[in-house]
Design a protein around this nucleic acid. Structure first.
Length: 117
DNA sequence: CGTCTGACGCACC
DNA sequence: GGGTGCGCCAGAC
């Protein structure tokens, strides 16, 4: 199985990046897409996370918010849960929003390069 | 194949 | 600060 893994699915790449988000920090959909190697696919990142199942407990999806620091999941009914999970790890959520200057995480493209494919 | 959709982002007003 | 419009593109049909 050496080289068949050459092309991981889009979904796998996205989840890898999300798993790399430090506890107590958050990032946005666009950044996840960029780090995953798929620029401009922020919406697809949301689609992937939407498809997560309860068994995917190792994916800290709550650490992904929109570019304005807002909780986008209220729109699909899991907003309250996301807020609870974030506050549980020390991230303050004021008026359904997170202060990106304080909690934002963005390692930059160099980080993505260092990640093993 | 062609179309539609949307946990987004950004330019504009 | 808020609201609207439109481009984006992988996946579902």
């Amino acid at each position: 199985m050496a080289q068949t893994s050459e092309e991981r699915t889009y979904r796998e790449r996205v989840l890898e990046v999300v798993r790399a988000i430090p506890r107590g920090k958050v990032t946005n959909y666009g950044t996840v897409a960029l780090l995953a190697g798929y620029p401009r696919t922020a919406r697809q990142v949301g689609a992937v996370l939407y498809g997560l199942r309860d068994s995917d407990t190792d994916v800290p999806w709550q650490r992904v918010v929109n570019a304005q620091g807002g909780i986008s999941t209220f729109k699909v009914g899991s907003g309250e849960l996301q807020v609870a999970l974030l506050e549980a790890e020390g991230v303050e959520v004021v008026d359904r929003r997170v202060d990106m200057d304080r909690y934002g995480w963005d390692p930059g493209l160099a980080w993505a390069e260092r990640q093993p494919k």
